[in-house]
Design a protein around this nucleic acid. Structure first.
Lengths: 215, 215
DNA sequence: ATAATAGTTGACTAGTCAGTAAACTTGAGA
DNA sequence: TCTCAAGTTTACTGACTAGTCAACTATTAT
């Protein structure tokens, strides 16, 4: 009954980009509404406030992103290839985001999480929970690789945590430096950390728009 | 001539903590002034605005922090011991910050840099420059260790970058999780990444206030 | 068709914010 | 000592902010 609307969805889509390209605190509700083409009254019809929208948007974005990870980390793919594909996917995503927005944006979860972790417990929990979920993909791949005997990693969780921390750190650096070349060695270093060579020659290298650091 | 004042310094000291415990964008000039015990008129007497204060504060904090690094990375200390001490120093700092503020705060440069990198070019450059300086300590230690034959790292810059990314990632995670135990393996993993055992048994392990993750 | 429901709108409040300006106070030096 | 530069204070403006509300509109089940 009553009229239908996709305003709620438009709000969740708008806010992700605003938080990622700017910051949580610098994004006003007016801005969000303008970007989503929704009037403020409607905003408050759907959400209690910015934090509530942010929580809903995190769920929304995660559900959109999850199928990518499911495909990349498919059990039908050899475990090390999953990890390699994930590195390449991350790189491609960062590259296309930079092309679209003019800035390297890094990890949206990390950016948001870093900013709000001392401010909003609810949002913090949500970020933590999504991060934990995404870590599981890596952990499973490592466990499978170890079981297959292609790497030595008896503690898959510990190894996944190291790779994950390295990945987050690198993405954070790339955002701060606004330089894709920071990510150039992502795949090779990841496999160095695993103690093996990448399973096959990396797919066509995408030339970064900025010159590589030479030093 | 004229009267003297330490208001400028008080402002620079106040702002560091506010940005670190909260965020750049959520910190208002009124808050900064109140914390520093300075009236807004005086604020604008010394600084053009929040960004200008932030830039000055970064220089100020860096000059306060640099002597710690100079001591830790002293050339008179064996290179691997420098790195170990740096890990331990980082851990102690995070522990005492958590005790003081109730939250794990992570890397202040990273937190600020992540937030403002898409918003303020001047601040971004300053963050980049300080990060580059702090990376040099690690790089030199690694180069020295390689020269001394205690590790194999022909490309000191590359190795330092990996350690640095890992460290930043770990500190970011610790902030997001608000959990010191995320940092528990910092030293051991750092040396694993260097391909060696820590030079001597790590100093007394500080029991984190939160339980260690068991999984 | 119409009533109940789901969503929309725009005008409103009250508070907060960055930034200004002019009068005022202090202290170092000639 | 008295001058004037350096720093302080207060009250102010105007823009923006979050959040409210009641009237309005579109949809759909009956």
């Amino acid at each position: 009954m009553g009229r239908t609307s996709d305003a709620k969805q438009r709000l969740m889509e708008a806010v992700g980009e605003l938080f990622w390209t700017g910051s949580y605190d610098s994004t006003t509700i007016d801005q969000i509404c303008e970007k989503a083409g929704v009037k403020k009254g409607s905003f408050y019809y759907f959400f209690e406030g910015k934090a509530a929208l942010a929580e809903a948007a995190l769920d929304f974005e995660w559900e959109k992103y999850r199928p990518n990870l499911d495909a990349i980390f498919s059990a039908s793919v050899p475990p090390l290839e999953r990890i390699q594909r994930h590195c390449e996917f991350t790189l491609e995503e960062q590259t296309s985001m930079k092309a679209e927005h003019g800035c390297v944006l890094g990890c949206p979860l990390c950016t948001l999480g870093t900013e709000i972790s001392t401010q909003d417990k609810g949002l913090q929990k949500k970020v933590q929970s999504i991060m934990a979920h995404s870590l599981k993909y890596l952990e499973t791949a490592i466990r499978d690789a170890h079981a297959a005997g292609v790497i030595h990693a008896p503690d898959a969780h510990a190894k996944a945590s190291v790779l994950h921390a390295y990945l987050l750190g690198l993405l954070t650096q790339a955002r701060i430096e606004n330089d894709l070349s920071v990510l150039a060695n992502l795949t090779s270093t990841t496999f160095e950390l695993l103690g093996v060579k990448p399973p096959k020659a990396p797919a066509k290298i995408r030339r970064p728009t900025q010159p590589l650091e030479t030093s």
